[in-house]
Amino acid sequence: MDRSVAQGVLLSFLAYFAYALSDAAVKLLEGGIHPFQSAFFGGVFGLAAIPFVLRPGERLFHAFATTNRKLWLLRALMAVTGALGSITAFTHLSMAEAFCLLFLLPAFVTLLSLVFLKESIGWRRWAAVVVGFAGVLVVLRPGFRELNIGHLGAVVGGFSGAVTIVLMRALGGRERRISLYGAGLAGLIVVAGVLMLPEFRWPNAVQWLWLAGYGLLAAVANVLIIAASAKAPASLVAPPQYSQMIWAIILGYLVFHDRLDWPMAVGTALIVASGLLTLLREKKRVPVAAAAPAIHPQ
């Protein structure tokens, strides 16, 4: 591995660490702010990354320019559902459990690619999907524990991220990076902004701190992913996302006093193995730099 590629991999690890800190920040709000409001401010603070997303010769209006308006709008909607799903998950679940379910994203990508892109799915990728969903059953233990809205939120977040990836594949190389990023921000700011109005409460000083941490750290993570993707291929930039699970366990233990039981550990191992196998088997890849802010695995 040459020096540039090694730097790219290191930057991707730093990016996913920033994402984990962003998720910890939104969890620290602990329901004090409505998810619509958190998503809105996540989009507002995400504007800080725009100067780093713009390529030479591009202008701000290119964030709203697109080759396919319907898919651009769907991308914006997925940014909203993804953010709301992940915020809900981190608010009601431990960080490790939330990430565990969010990491169903690769399995969802496989299924959506089969249905909408008519991709050929080999037995190894099917095996990865089965292993991933088996891991989810181990984690959730249906019939043996009470499930809550956080579990639904995590699944919605992972599914929304998967739809975003499939949309990027459908658009191919025709869409500007700033357009994909701008669609995500527009969805969060406009849709979440309207939905938050009935229950809007002005944040106090501490809540402003966590909201800023949530949005700005996600923006920093996006910039780092862009820098990593410029130095290393996507096949090396994507796998480090699973390091978020390590950070989730550490932050969960130190900050939120979470405990990781054996079923959770086994289920997590199965889901991570499923995701890594899917990444290794995929032949068509999408630049990770185009991922939406505040949607991760994003």
Results as ranks from 00 to 15, higher is better:
residue 62 H to A: 08
residue 62 H to K: 01
residue 63 A to T: 09
residue 64 F to G: 03
residue 66 T to P: 02
residue 67 T to W: 00
residue 69 R to E: 01
residue 69 R to M: 06
residue 72 W to H: 06
residue 72 W to Q: 04
residue 73 L to W: 10
residue 73 L to A: 13
residue 74 L to I: 14
residue 75 R to Y: 15
residue 76 A to G: 09
residue 76 A to W: 05
residue 77 L to G: 10
residue 77 L to A: 14
residue 78 M to K: 02
residue 79 A to L: 05
residue 80 V to W: 00
residue 80 V to H: 05
residue 82 G to E: 05
residue 84 L to P: 03
residue 84 L to K: 01
residue 88 T to I: 09
residue 88 T to Q: 10
residue 89 A to E: 02
residue 89 A to Q: 03
residue 89 A to T: 05
residue 90 F to A: 08
residue 90 F to R: 00
residue 92 H to W: 13
residue 92 H to F: 14
residue 93 L to S: 02
residue 94 S to W: 05
residue 95 M to A: 15
residue 97 E to C: 04
residue 98 A to P: 02
residue 98 A to R: 00
residue 99 F to N: 06
residue 99 F to L: 12
residue 100 C to I: 06
residue 102 L to W: 01
residue 103 F to P: 02
residue 103 F to L: 06
residue 104 L to C: 12
residue 105 L to R: 09
residue 105 L to W: 01
residue 105 L to T: 13
residue 107 A to M: 09
residue 107 A to T: 07
residue 113 S to W: 02
residue 113 S to M: 14
residue 114 L to I: 12
residue 116 F to T: 11
residue 116 F to Y: 08
residue 117 L to F: 01
residue 118 K to I: 09
residue 118 K to Y: 04
residue 118 K to G: 11
residue 119 E to Y: 02
residue 119 E to I: 06
residue 119 E to D: 14
residue 120 S to P: 11
residue 120 S to H: 15
residue 122 G to N: 11
residue 122 G to P: 09
residue 122 G to S: 08
residue 123 W to A: 15
residue 123 W to I: 15
residue 124 R to H: 11
residue 127 A to F: 10
residue 127 A to G: 12
residue 128 A to M: 03
residue 128 A to W: 00
residue 128 A to V: 04
residue 130 V to C: 11
residue 130 V to T: 11
